[in-house]
Amino acid sequence: MHGGLDSEKISCIEAILYSEDLNEATKQVASIGDSEMLYVLAANYNWDNGFSIPRAIITNNNCDMSTGLMMFYLSDGIRLLVDKESVEQSGLDEWSKFITEVYSKLEMDVFKRSSISYYPELTKVQLFKLKKSNPNIPGFFLDGIEGNDIEIPMI
């Protein structure tokens, strides 16, 4: 394991995760200048709280590819890879728009590179099916991104 956030950064993440004021929390996310903090925030985010915070994470210039890929998978982006049409017809507009945006940012290499790793938890069967149905998908979507494993405190 590598790194680890100091207590001040963890307190900042806690404040965002448990904030009653979504606008204020979203502003705080926008001001984070540390890729590792965004990664830990993303890993601890409760998706029942909607897409404002996730959107703020992926639009932050310090959001790296690993965090982007994690957000893609945590928001059930795999459904986009399995069956794009079912996502488009899901009626879940905000979700569908979010995963489509994250996918294209990843594909177009918009996120910054960092030393943080992320490996999607895919079974061999899922990998096989995804490779078969998406032969042109960039490899990192399936194989993950190499780098340092960041310790993710559960907040």
Rank of each mutant, 00 (worst) to 15 (best):
I78L: 12
R113G: 05
A43S: 15
G147N: 09
E24G: 05
S52W: 08
A30F: 07
K124M: 08
L92W: 12
K105R: 15
G33D: 12
L22E: 13
Y73M: 03
S86R: 09
S35R: 14
S66Q: 06
L74P: 02
N49Q: 14
P54F: 12
D64K: 03
F140S: 03
K97D: 05
L106M: 07
E24S: 13
H2E: 13
D83T: 10
P54G: 06
E36L: 05
S115H: 10
S7G: 05
N23R: 13
S75I: 02
A43H: 07
R55P: 08
M65I: 13
T67Q: 02
E88A: 14
F72D: 05
S52N: 13
E24H: 13
M1H: 11
N23T: 13
C63I: 00
L22Q: 13
Q89P: 00
I10S: 08
E24P: 01
N62P: 00
E121V: 04
Q126H: 01
V87Y: 11
L127M: 15
P120C: 04
G50F: 04
I53E: 05
L81Y: 04
Y103F: 15
M70F: 09
P54L: 06
L130I: 01
T100K: 03
I32V: 01
D93N: 11
N62R: 09
V125Y: 13
M70H: 02
D64T: 03
K27C: 03
G50C: 09
R79P: 00
P120S: 06
G33C: 01
K131I: 00
E8K: 15
L122E: 08
S114K: 07
I78C: 10
W95E: 10
K84S: 15
P135G: 06
T26P: 00
V40N: 05
E101M: 02
A42D: 11
L69K: 01
I10T: 10
V82G: 03
K84C: 07
Y119R: 14
D109R: 12
N49R: 12
S11F: 10
S133G: 03
Y73L: 04
S7M: 14
T100H: 03
F51V: 08
R113Q: 15
D76F: 07
I155V: 15
L74Q: 12
V110T: 05
V102F: 05
T100L: 12
D83G: 09
N23L: 06
N46K: 02
M1Y: 12
I57E: 06
L22I: 15
G3M: 14
E14H: 10
Y18A: 01
G3H: 14
D149F: 10
E14N: 11
W47C: 12
N46D: 14
L74Y: 07
F128L: 09
C12R: 15
L80W: 14
R79W: 06
G144E: 07
L5H: 01
S86P: 10
E36K: 09
S31A: 08
R55T: 15
I155R: 08
S11E: 10
N23I: 00
T26L: 07
F128N: 11
M70Y: 07
E101L: 03
I32T: 02
D76G: 14
L5E: 07
E88T: 10
D48Y: 12
E94P: 00
K84F: 15
E151Q: 09
A56Y: 09
E8A: 15
